[in-house]
Amino acid sequence: MENFLVTDAQLFKRDKRFQLLFRNVGDWGCGDRKEGYEVKRFAEDVSFELSQKAIKQGYNLFDHLLFRSNFYACYAQKEHIYTIDTKGNLLKCTVALYDEENKIGNLDSFVIDDQKQKLWINNYEFSQKCSKYQLLLICKGGACPKRDIFNERTFNEKCQRMRQNILQNFELAILSNKVNYKLKVE
């Protein structure tokens, strides 16, 4: 990626139609791939570091100030957003394609399993721990519903990750000169 920024990406660097968004490759399951199929993944999130480098080289980033919230964390949380697979199954998440919890209905029956759908829609409830969180109004408890449904992260892990994302987004906004700020000392 660093080489890409100084070579090919130069072609659209000054074009306002293009913005960069860095995300690490994630483990979203094997799907139809054979066992042993693996993608090299970094142990640490490198998207923030790459974003910093891109800003310093004059690139524009995509929505670095878009903070996730309970409503906007994921399309699967919205009531009338669906994915239809090749078998006519009605799904909520395009990542958990092969998980039964993701199948909320089928086009043949025209019936939606309300219990399964409720897992995905507005599924986040604030913990008492959240009430003391300084960034609560920005965070709003937004998280990937898949991670909650499949218990992929503890509350503390989700909270720590969200806090890190918010603070990094602020830093990127300041580096980009896209936010006016004034430090207040109390």
Results as ranks from 00 to 15, higher is better:
residue 2 E to H: 06
residue 3 N to C: 06
residue 4 F to N: 08
residue 6 V to D: 00
residue 8 D to Y: 05
residue 9 A to N: 05
residue 10 Q to C: 01
residue 11 L to K: 04
residue 11 L to R: 04
residue 12 F to L: 00
residue 12 F to R: 00
residue 13 K to D: 00
residue 14 R to T: 15
residue 14 R to W: 15
residue 17 R to Y: 00
residue 17 R to E: 05
residue 18 F to M: 04
residue 18 F to K: 09
residue 20 L to A: 03
residue 21 L to W: 05
residue 22 F to P: 06
residue 25 V to P: 00
residue 28 W to D: 01
residue 29 G to N: 10
residue 31 G to Q: 02
residue 31 G to V: 00
residue 32 D to G: 15
residue 32 D to L: 13
residue 36 G to Y: 03
residue 36 G to E: 06
residue 38 E to T: 11
residue 39 V to Y: 07
residue 41 R to I: 08
residue 43 A to Y: 04
residue 49 E to P: 05
residue 49 E to L: 06
residue 50 L to W: 12
residue 51 S to L: 01
residue 52 Q to E: 15
residue 52 Q to K: 15
residue 58 G to H: 13
residue 58 G to R: 08
residue 60 N to S: 03
residue 61 L to Y: 01
residue 64 H to K: 05
residue 64 H to C: 01
residue 68 R to I: 08
residue 70 N to I: 12
residue 72 Y to L: 11
residue 75 Y to N: 14
residue 75 Y to D: 10
residue 86 T to G: 14
residue 88 G to S: 11
residue 89 N to E: 15
residue 91 L to C: 10
residue 92 K to N: 01
residue 93 C to E: 03
residue 94 T to E: 09
residue 100 E to H: 14
residue 100 E to N: 14
residue 101 E to Y: 12
residue 102 N to M: 04
residue 103 K to D: 13
residue 104 I to T: 08
residue 104 I to C: 00
residue 105 G to Y: 13
residue 108 D to Y: 14
residue 111 V to R: 11
residue 113 D to F: 09
residue 116 K to G: 04
residue 118 K to N: 13
residue 120 W to P: 04
residue 121 I to N: 05
residue 124 Y to W: 07
residue 127 S to K: 10
residue 130 C to L: 05
residue 133 Y to D: 13
residue 133 Y to H: 09
residue 134 Q to E: 10
residue 134 Q to F: 06
residue 136 L to W: 09
residue 137 L to M: 11
residue 138 I to F: 12
residue 142 G to E: 07
residue 143 A to L: 09
residue 149 I to S: 04
residue 149 I to R: 03
residue 149 I to G: 11
residue 156 N to W: 04
residue 158 K to Q: 09
residue 159 C to T: 09
residue 160 Q to E: 01
residue 161 R to T: 15
residue 163 R to C: 08
residue 165 N to P: 08
residue 165 N to W: 13
residue 167 L to P: 07
residue 170 F to I: 12
residue 172 L to Q: 11
residue 173 A to P: 01
residue 174 I to D: 15
residue 174 I to G: 15
residue 185 V to L: 08
residue 185 V to A: 00
residue 186 E to Q: 13
residue 186 E to M: 07
